[in-house]
Design a protein around this nucleic acid. Structure first.
Lengths: 205, 205
DNA sequence: ACTTTTGTTAACCATTTGGTTAATTATATG
DNA sequence: CATATAATTAACCAAATGGTTAACAAAAGT
């Protein structure tokens, strides 16, 4: 009854291959043949399991972009104080990116190049929870006199900028600072606490 | 005697067109025909003036990437105090990006996708001046007890992250915050002072 | 057992793409 | 003016690319 016979192992292989190739080369740079090769299947199978390149890409993109929105809502609802919430978010967000270092650039780039591909609706579905609550928490903390006044949008931008940008700029950072792969990992590990403290230091009253 | 006849106006038109197309679509997404169309010339002219796609791209890329390294060395040599140097750098750097909002993403993306294309040597040529001096200034300020101890690399990362990342993440920011083009420009304008004060607030003793 | 459905393959196809060629026009230059 | 040189064009080409087809193998259903 299941639309695709037994174990659908091939579908998995295709998705894994597609994920690698798309993330490495982007939509326009990826070749269907590359994906087929990496999946060790015939190119025709790609179109058997997925309509065409765009469909396959959209699937991978949305799956990947989803990782950029961990479920911070629980965290926002927790009874941690505001500063500890920042500490938690920064640490776990950088951790997510350490585990998937290529996705920020991939997502940002494809969003710019293919504005149509239906990510507006996709993200608008994901959005409401976290950003709204975080904004509210910032405004509360300002009212309570816990932190200096700041436009919440700027604070959020600052936070995500410092978390994500170093991964996007990694090749340039390596060249400009002479840092190598291992040291880079160490630096990113350090940032899990450093960035939060940097922010808190700046806004605390 | 000049290798190319009269005014070489065509060469300019090609470069302008190539700049637009490459920045918008990237190396792999750009089509030589698009460039020719935008330049209002025959496709063969592209190869008459520039060997091939890669050559043309390399030219555009290096020219564009160069803009990401304004001449901050003079600024570092000036007699401004450390905090004012940060203020100046942030303001003028964000200004540069406001004038060329697409280049950070373009440069970062192409550096990731085409690590070979010879940007290592290119950037290593540009590098020594600014980063070295800024690092030194940070270390001095720490020794002088002007700011709290911090690894200079992290401070530099934080600064450039907050300057550049919002432009890279613009499409996502617009979706997540509901901000529109004009408000976005306003926000970025605000950041010219906000980011510097955010940093100074965090590190000053 | 046999028939239908699902999975897989090799060969094929049309279009796109980067690049070339040979002929033509414009521009200097003696 | 004549002629060499530079600029430009249309037509062409081979390779790459996304996608299809038709035939075949493997399961599943009866």
């Amino acid at each position: 009854m299941a639309k695709k016979g037994k174990d659908t192992n091939t579908e998995e292989k295709i998705l894994n291959a597609a994920r690698q190739v798309f993330i490495e080369k982007g939509l326009s740079g990826a070749r269907m043949q590359d994906i087929a090769d990496k999946a060790e299947i015939n190119k025709a199978m790609l179109h058997y399991y997925f309509k065409n390149k765009e469909m396959l890409f959209k699937l991978i993109f949305q799956e990947t972009a989803g990782k950029l929105f961990p479920h911070f809502e629980k965290l926002m609802d927790s009874d941690l104080n505001f500063f500890d919430k920042i500490r938690s978010i920064v640490a776990s967000y950088i951790d997510v990116i350490i585990q998937n270092p290529y996705i920020p650039l991939f997502v940002m780039n494809e969003m710019n190049k293919n504005p149509e591909i239906g990510m507006k609706t996709f993200f608008e579905a994901q959005k409401p929870g976290f950003v709204k609550k975080f904004r509210q928490a910032i405004e509360n903390s300002i009212e309570m006199g816990l932190i200096e006044p700041i436009n919440p949008i700027h604070l959020i931008m600052n936070m995500f900028s410092m978390c994500a940008f170093p991964f996007i700029a990694k090749p340039m950072i390596k060249i400009l600072t002479g840092v190598e792969e291992e040291q880079f990992r160490n630096l990113m590990e350090q940032r899990k606490v450093l960035v939060a403290e940097f922010i808190i230091n700046s806004i605390k009253k």
